[in-house]
Protein backbone atom coordinates (compact mmCIF):
# COMPACT_ATOMS: atom_id res chain seq x y z
CA UNK A 1 0.00 0.00 0.00
CA UNK A 2 2.68 2.53 0.95
CA UNK A 3 5.20 3.59 -1.63
CA UNK A 4 8.78 4.43 -0.65
CA UNK A 5 9.34 8.13 -1.16
CA UNK A 6 12.49 9.86 -2.34
CA UNK A 7 12.77 12.55 0.27
CA UNK A 8 15.36 14.93 -1.14
CA UNK A 9 13.92 18.18 -2.45
CA UNK A 10 10.40 16.90 -2.48
CA UNK A 11 8.28 19.63 -4.06
CA UNK A 12 5.01 17.84 -4.78
CA UNK A 13 3.52 14.46 -4.07
CA UNK A 14 0.34 12.53 -4.18
CA UNK A 15 -0.48 11.63 -0.63
CA UNK A 16 -2.95 9.18 0.85
CA UNK A 17 -4.68 10.32 4.00
CA UNK A 18 -5.98 7.43 6.09
CA UNK A 19 -8.54 9.03 8.35
CA UNK A 20 -9.98 7.26 11.35
CA UNK A 21 -13.64 8.08 11.20
CA UNK A 22 -16.41 7.61 13.70
CA UNK A 23 -20.08 8.39 13.83
CA UNK A 24 -22.76 7.22 16.22
CA UNK A 25 -24.59 5.63 13.31
CA UNK A 26 -21.66 3.92 11.56
CA UNK A 27 -19.18 3.28 14.39
CA UNK A 28 -15.40 3.22 13.78
CA UNK A 29 -13.92 2.83 10.31
CA UNK A 30 -10.94 3.96 8.23
CA UNK A 31 -11.32 5.98 5.07
CA UNK A 32 -8.68 6.94 2.51
CA UNK A 33 -8.42 10.12 0.49
CA UNK A 34 -5.88 10.76 -2.26
CA UNK A 35 -4.67 14.31 -2.65
CA UNK A 36 -1.94 16.11 -4.54
CA UNK A 37 -0.05 18.50 -2.29
CA UNK A 38 2.94 20.81 -2.65
CA UNK A 39 5.60 21.71 -0.12
CA UNK A 40 3.47 24.53 1.32
CA UNK A 41 0.35 22.50 2.07
CA UNK A 42 -0.64 22.44 5.75
CA UNK A 43 -2.65 19.48 7.04
CA UNK A 44 -5.57 21.87 7.71
CA UNK A 45 -5.49 22.94 4.05
CA UNK A 46 -5.43 19.30 2.97
CA UNK A 47 -8.47 18.63 5.17
CA UNK A 48 -10.25 21.68 3.76
CA UNK A 49 -9.67 20.45 0.21
CA UNK A 50 -10.89 16.97 1.08
CA UNK A 51 -14.04 18.43 2.63
CA UNK A 52 -14.75 20.89 -0.18
CA UNK A 53 -13.83 18.67 -3.14
CA UNK A 54 -14.12 15.03 -2.08
CA UNK A 55 -16.13 14.32 1.02
CA UNK A 56 -18.20 17.09 2.61
CA UNK A 57 -19.22 14.78 5.46
CA UNK A 58 -15.73 14.65 7.03
CA UNK A 59 -15.84 16.38 10.44
CA UNK A 60 -12.88 18.19 12.01
CA UNK A 61 -12.21 21.46 13.81
CA UNK A 62 -10.02 24.23 12.37
CA UNK A 63 -10.13 27.98 12.57
CA UNK A 64 -7.14 30.34 12.50
CA UNK A 65 -4.68 28.12 10.57
CA UNK A 66 -1.77 29.94 12.29
CA UNK A 67 -1.46 28.11 15.62
CA UNK A 68 -3.09 30.69 17.89
CA UNK A 69 -6.66 29.40 18.25
CA UNK A 70 -5.92 25.80 19.31
CA UNK A 71 -8.80 24.16 17.40
CA UNK A 72 -7.09 21.56 15.23
CA UNK A 73 -5.33 19.19 17.66
CA UNK A 74 -5.21 15.61 16.33
CA UNK A 75 -2.88 12.62 15.93
CA UNK A 76 -0.86 12.72 12.74
CA UNK A 77 0.96 9.44 12.13
CA UNK A 78 0.46 8.80 15.81
CA UNK A 79 1.94 12.11 17.01
CA UNK A 80 -0.25 14.64 18.84
CA UNK A 81 0.03 17.82 16.74
CA UNK A 82 -1.81 20.89 15.53
CA UNK A 83 -2.85 20.14 11.95
CA UNK A 84 -2.19 23.74 10.90
CA UNK A 85 1.33 23.69 12.28
CA UNK A 86 2.16 20.55 10.28
CA UNK A 87 3.19 20.59 6.63
CA UNK A 88 2.07 17.47 4.78
CA UNK A 89 5.39 16.90 3.00
CA UNK A 90 7.33 17.25 6.26
CA UNK A 91 5.38 14.27 7.55
CA UNK A 92 6.06 12.36 4.32
CA UNK A 93 9.79 13.09 4.67
CA UNK A 94 9.94 12.23 8.35
CA UNK A 95 8.18 8.89 8.01
CA UNK A 96 9.40 7.98 4.54
CA UNK A 97 5.92 7.12 3.30
CA UNK A 98 3.23 8.97 1.44
CA UNK A 99 0.52 7.42 3.58
CA UNK A 100 -0.46 9.68 6.48
CA UNK A 101 -2.84 8.60 9.21
CA UNK A 102 -5.09 11.11 10.93
CA UNK A 103 -6.80 10.18 14.18
CA UNK A 104 -8.63 12.10 16.90
CA UNK A 105 -6.63 13.07 20.01
CA UNK A 106 -6.27 10.34 22.62
CA UNK A 107 -7.99 10.41 25.99
CA UNK A 108 -10.94 12.61 24.96
CA UNK A 109 -14.31 11.08 24.10
CA UNK A 110 -14.82 11.08 20.32
CA UNK A 111 -17.84 13.02 19.07
CA UNK A 112 -17.41 12.47 15.35
CA UNK A 113 -14.44 11.72 13.07
CA UNK A 114 -11.60 13.99 14.27
CA UNK A 115 -13.80 16.02 16.64
CA UNK A 116 -13.44 15.21 20.33
CA UNK A 117 -15.40 16.34 23.38
CA UNK A 118 -13.35 18.96 25.24
CA UNK A 119 -15.81 19.56 28.10
CA UNK A 120 -13.66 17.87 30.71
CA UNK A 121 -10.61 19.86 29.55
CA UNK A 122 -12.46 23.14 29.99
CA UNK A 123 -13.65 22.01 33.44
CA UNK A 124 -10.04 21.36 34.45
CA UNK A 125 -9.04 24.85 33.30
CA UNK A 126 -11.91 26.35 35.29
CA UNK A 127 -10.77 24.51 38.44
CA UNK A 128 -7.60 26.65 38.62
CA UNK A 129 -9.69 29.86 38.51
CA UNK A 130 -8.10 31.08 35.31
CA UNK A 131 -8.43 34.82 35.86
CA UNK A 132 -6.69 37.58 37.76
CA UNK A 133 -8.23 38.68 41.06
CA UNK A 134 -6.80 42.18 41.44
CA UNK A 135 -6.99 44.15 44.66
CA UNK A 136 -10.04 46.25 45.44
CA UNK A 137 -7.93 49.41 45.28
CA UNK A 138 -6.85 48.62 41.73
CA UNK A 139 -10.38 47.81 40.56
CA UNK A 140 -11.62 51.06 42.11
CA UNK A 141 -8.82 52.99 40.40
CA UNK A 142 -7.26 53.99 43.74
CA UNK A 143 -4.04 52.18 42.83
CA UNK A 144 -2.15 51.25 39.69
CA UNK A 145 -0.46 48.00 38.74
CA UNK A 146 3.16 47.96 37.86
CA UNK A 147 4.80 44.81 36.57
CA UNK A 148 8.53 44.24 36.24
CA UNK A 149 9.60 43.43 32.67
CA UNK A 150 11.16 40.16 33.87
CA UNK A 151 7.91 39.13 35.59
CA UNK A 152 5.98 39.95 32.44
CA UNK A 153 8.34 37.74 30.42
CA UNK A 154 8.08 34.83 32.86
CA UNK A 155 4.28 34.94 33.10
CA UNK A 156 3.77 35.48 29.36
CA UNK A 157 5.63 32.26 28.66
CA UNK A 158 2.92 30.29 30.49
CA UNK A 159 0.04 32.58 29.47
CA UNK A 160 0.57 31.59 25.84
CA UNK A 161 -1.38 28.37 26.31
CA UNK A 162 -4.03 28.17 23.56
CA UNK A 163 -6.14 25.46 25.26
CA UNK A 164 -5.63 22.99 22.39
CA UNK A 165 -5.59 19.95 24.69
CA UNK A 166 -2.61 18.22 23.05
CA UNK A 167 -0.64 18.01 26.31
CA UNK A 168 -3.56 16.46 28.15
CA UNK A 169 -4.07 13.95 25.34
CA UNK A 170 -0.43 12.90 25.70
CA UNK A 171 -0.19 12.91 29.51
CA UNK A 172 0.04 9.49 31.22
CA UNK A 173 -0.49 10.95 34.70
CA UNK A 174 -3.84 12.49 33.78
CA UNK A 175 -4.94 9.09 32.54
CA UNK A 176 -4.05 7.32 35.81
CA UNK A 177 -4.70 9.93 38.47
CA UNK A 178 -8.06 11.69 38.70
CA UNK A 179 -6.66 14.13 41.28
CA UNK A 180 -4.01 15.46 38.88
CA UNK A 181 -5.14 18.68 37.17
CA UNK A 182 -3.04 18.02 34.08
CA UNK A 183 -0.34 20.02 32.32
CA UNK A 184 -2.39 22.83 30.69
CA UNK A 185 -4.27 23.66 33.88
CA UNK A 186 -1.00 23.75 35.83
CA UNK A 187 0.57 26.16 33.34
CA UNK A 188 -2.48 28.40 33.67
CA UNK A 189 -2.55 27.96 37.44
CA UNK A 190 1.09 28.91 37.86
CA UNK A 191 0.67 31.94 35.59
CA UNK A 192 -1.80 33.41 38.12
CA UNK A 193 -0.18 31.98 41.26
CA UNK A 194 3.05 33.78 40.40
CA UNK A 195 1.38 37.04 39.23
CA UNK A 196 2.28 39.73 41.79
CA UNK A 197 -0.98 41.54 40.98
CA UNK A 198 -3.17 38.62 42.14
CA UNK A 199 -4.83 38.47 45.58
CA UNK A 200 -6.23 34.93 46.02
CA UNK A 201 -2.93 33.13 46.55
CA UNK A 202 -4.26 31.05 49.45
CA UNK A 203 -7.05 29.60 47.33
CA UNK A 204 -4.68 28.91 44.44
CA UNK A 205 -2.27 27.08 46.74
CA UNK A 206 -5.08 24.76 47.85
CA UNK A 207 -5.87 23.88 44.24
CA UNK A 208 -2.31 23.56 42.91
CA UNK A 209 0.04 22.39 45.66
CA UNK A 210 -0.94 18.74 45.95
CA UNK A 211 -1.74 18.23 42.28
CA UNK A 212 1.71 19.52 41.27
CA UNK A 213 3.24 16.45 42.94
CA UNK A 214 1.13 14.09 40.84
CA UNK A 215 3.06 14.84 37.65
CA UNK A 216 5.57 12.10 36.75
CA UNK A 217 7.99 14.41 34.90
CA UNK A 218 7.72 12.31 31.74
CA UNK A 219 8.04 15.46 29.59
CA UNK A 220 5.38 14.46 27.06
CA UNK A 221 3.69 17.88 27.49
CA UNK A 222 7.03 19.55 26.88
CA UNK A 223 7.42 17.68 23.59
CA UNK A 224 3.91 18.05 22.18
CA UNK A 225 3.11 21.67 23.14
CA UNK A 226 2.79 23.65 19.89
CA UNK A 227 3.52 26.92 21.67
CA UNK A 228 6.56 25.68 23.61
CA UNK A 229 5.14 26.83 26.92
CA UNK A 230 6.63 23.88 28.85
CA UNK A 231 3.80 22.95 31.24
CA UNK A 232 6.22 20.68 33.13
CA UNK A 233 8.38 23.73 33.90
CA UNK A 234 5.33 25.44 35.39
CA UNK A 235 4.78 22.35 37.55
CA UNK A 236 8.39 22.35 38.73
CA UNK A 237 8.18 26.02 39.58
CA UNK A 238 4.91 25.46 41.44
CA UNK A 239 6.54 22.73 43.54
CA UNK A 240 9.52 24.93 44.32
CA UNK A 241 7.38 27.94 45.17
CA UNK A 242 5.06 25.96 47.45
CA UNK A 243 7.58 23.49 48.89
CA UNK A 244 6.87 24.23 52.54
CA UNK A 245 3.22 25.36 52.55
CA UNK A 246 0.98 23.57 55.02
CA UNK A 247 -1.24 21.67 55.45
CA UNK A 248 0.12 19.27 52.88
CA UNK A 249 -2.01 17.03 50.69
CA UNK A 250 -1.12 13.34 50.40
CA UNK A 251 0.89 13.60 47.16
CA UNK A 252 2.59 16.76 48.32
CA UNK A 253 3.57 15.18 51.63
CA UNK A 254 5.13 12.18 49.92
CA UNK A 255 6.82 14.48 47.45
CA UNK A 256 8.14 16.68 50.19
CA UNK A 257 9.57 13.70 52.09
CA UNK A 258 11.05 12.39 48.87
CA UNK A 259 12.89 15.60 48.07
CA UNK A 260 14.20 15.80 51.65
CA UNK A 261 15.31 12.17 51.48
CA UNK A 262 17.10 12.78 48.19
CA UNK A 263 18.82 15.84 49.66
CA UNK A 264 19.86 13.93 52.74
CA UNK A 265 21.11 10.97 50.71
CA UNK A 266 23.26 13.13 48.54
CA UNK A 267 24.57 14.97 51.59
CA UNK A 268 25.46 11.68 53.25
CA UNK A 269 26.66 9.60 50.30
CA UNK A 270 27.24 12.06 47.50
CA UNK A 271 24.71 10.04 45.49
CA UNK A 272 21.26 8.44 45.71
CA UNK A 273 20.90 5.54 48.11
CA UNK A 274 17.75 4.01 46.58
CA UNK A 275 16.77 1.87 49.58
CA UNK A 276 17.12 4.62 52.17
CA UNK A 277 15.36 7.19 49.98
CA UNK A 278 12.49 4.77 49.46
CA UNK A 279 12.01 4.11 53.16
CA UNK A 280 12.27 7.78 54.07
CA UNK A 281 9.76 8.70 51.36
CA UNK A 282 7.10 6.05 51.93
CA UNK A 283 7.72 4.95 55.55
CA UNK A 284 8.75 1.54 56.85
CA UNK A 285 5.44 -0.33 56.51
CA UNK A 286 4.74 0.67 52.91
CA UNK A 287 8.38 -0.05 52.07
CA UNK A 288 8.18 -3.56 53.52
CA UNK A 289 5.00 -4.26 51.56
CA UNK A 290 6.58 -2.91 48.38
CA UNK A 291 9.69 -5.06 49.07
CA UNK A 292 7.57 -8.19 48.61
CA UNK A 293 6.82 -7.02 45.04
CA UNK A 294 10.52 -6.34 44.53
CA UNK A 295 11.36 -9.86 45.74
CA UNK A 296 8.83 -11.40 43.39
CA UNK A 297 10.22 -9.43 40.48
CA UNK A 298 13.78 -10.45 41.43
CA UNK A 299 14.81 -6.85 42.00
CA UNK A 300 15.30 -6.80 45.76
CA UNK A 301 19.09 -6.87 45.38
CA UNK A 302 19.06 -3.31 44.06
CA UNK A 303 17.25 -2.03 47.13
CA UNK A 304 19.48 -3.93 49.53
CA UNK A 305 22.74 -2.98 47.87
CA UNK A 306 25.28 -1.61 50.31
CA UNK A 307 26.02 2.01 49.45
CA UNK A 308 29.33 3.67 50.31
CA UNK A 309 29.86 7.44 50.22
CA UNK A 310 31.67 8.68 47.12
CA UNK A 311 35.30 9.75 47.52
CA UNK A 312 34.55 13.44 47.03
CA UNK A 313 31.64 13.51 49.48
CA UNK A 314 33.20 16.36 51.48
CA UNK A 315 33.29 18.55 48.37
CA UNK A 316 29.64 17.69 47.65
CA UNK A 317 28.68 18.75 51.16
CA UNK A 318 30.57 22.00 50.80
CA UNK A 319 28.67 22.74 47.60
CA UNK A 320 25.35 21.90 49.26
CA UNK A 321 26.11 24.14 52.20
CA UNK A 322 26.83 26.86 49.67
CA UNK A 323 30.47 27.23 50.68
Amino acid sequence: MSTPVQVQDLQEAEVVFRVKRYSKEKGDYWQEYKLKVDRFTQVTEALRRIKVKQDPSLAYRASCHMAVCGSCGMKINGEPRLACKTLVLDVVKKFGTNVITLEPMDRFPIVKDLVVDMTEFYDRMERVKPRLYPSKEVLEYKAEHRLKPEDQRLLWKFAQCIWCGLCVSACPAVKEDPLFLGPAAHAKGFRFLRDPRDTITEERVKVLADSAWRCTYCYMCYHVCPRDIEPVTAIKKTRALLKSVKPMGPAQEVGHKHSEAVYESIYTYGKINEGVVYVKTYGLIRSLVDMTYAFRAGKAKYALEKVEPVKEVEQVRELMRGE
Partner: peptide, 15 residues
Protein backbone atom coordinates in the same frame (compact mmCIF):
# COMPACT_ATOMS: atom_id res chain seq x y z
CA UNK B 1 -7.36 45.41 30.32
CA UNK B 2 -4.18 45.77 32.38
CA UNK B 3 -6.25 45.78 35.57
CA UNK B 4 -7.94 42.60 34.35
CA UNK B 5 -4.55 40.91 34.07
CA UNK B 6 -3.38 41.42 30.47
CA UNK B 7 0.38 40.94 30.28
CA UNK B 8 1.33 43.97 28.20
CA UNK B 9 5.02 44.29 27.44
CA UNK B 10 6.66 46.64 29.92
CA UNK B 11 9.13 49.48 30.07
CA UNK B 12 11.98 49.10 32.55
CA UNK B 13 10.02 51.13 35.15
CA UNK B 14 7.09 48.70 35.00
CA UNK B 15 4.75 50.83 32.88
Amino acid sequence: LERWGALFNRQPDGR
